[in-house]
């Protein structure tokens, strides 16, 4: 086992948790990510492989899905798979092994930072942050949008549980934007 210690996207040893009004913001650092793109002509095999992995058909455009593992749609024939890092640190390798060359898999875990917002009045917060119509979300939406000039994914797990996924290197700016909106809106 290697002995190098990981740091969080915010550059600390532990993820950040904070409470503002009715909302808790939690930095999530224990989820492995891998992108899966179907190779040309191998789309059916990719869908089948992902269905086995996710326990459900891979999600449609703009959607979050999956039962055993979750995934969200990123583009035509392109998905991001989420899995607990503890058991799936080598998620990309695991998926590549299942694919028999039908899928192009890329490790994505450390390309992203993630902040989960849970609680009431989340829509009041998000309407200060991005143009996505969060208020209309019912659960299962996964959209690409911009928060303070940062491209982000927003996943609506339930209307009271949203994940904001942004580029890791700008975690500080994203965190600041989220916190500012929490203080401002609530």
């Amino acid at each position: 086992m290697h002995d190098l210690r990981a740091i969080t996207p915010l550059g600390r040893s532990e993820p950040v948790v904070e409470v503002h009004g009715t909302v808790t913001m939690t930095e999530v650092t224990d989820v492995a990510l891998a992108s899966v793109a179907a190779r040309r002509g191998r789309e059916p095999e990719t869908l089948a492989a992902l269905e086995r992995v996710l326990g459900d058909a891979p999600p449609a455009p703009g959607c979050l899905g999956g039962k055993t593992l979750t995934a969200f749609w990123m583009g035509p024939d392109l998905w991001m798979i989420e899995a607990p890092n503890d058991t799936h640190e080598d998620l990309a390798a695991q998926l590549a092994a299942l694919s028999s060359g039908a899928m192009s898999v890329t490790e994505q875990t450390d390309a992203w930072c993630r902040f989960d917002l849970t609680g009431e009045r989340l829509a009041d917060v998000f309407e200060r942050l991005c143009a996505a119509n969060i208020r209309a979300f019912q659960g299962g939406e996964a959209v690409r949008t911009t928060i303070h000039h940062l491209g982000c994914y927003i996943l609506c797990r339930t209307p009271a549980h949203m994940s904001v996924i942004g580029a890791r290197s700008s975690a500080g700016s994203l965190h600041h934007a989220l916190r500012t909106a929490l203080v401002s809106a609530l």
Partner: peptide
């Protein structure tokens, strides 16, 4: 297939 890994 292409994807950016600058950050990863």
């Amino acid at each position: 297939q292409l994807i950016s890994t600058t950050e990863a």
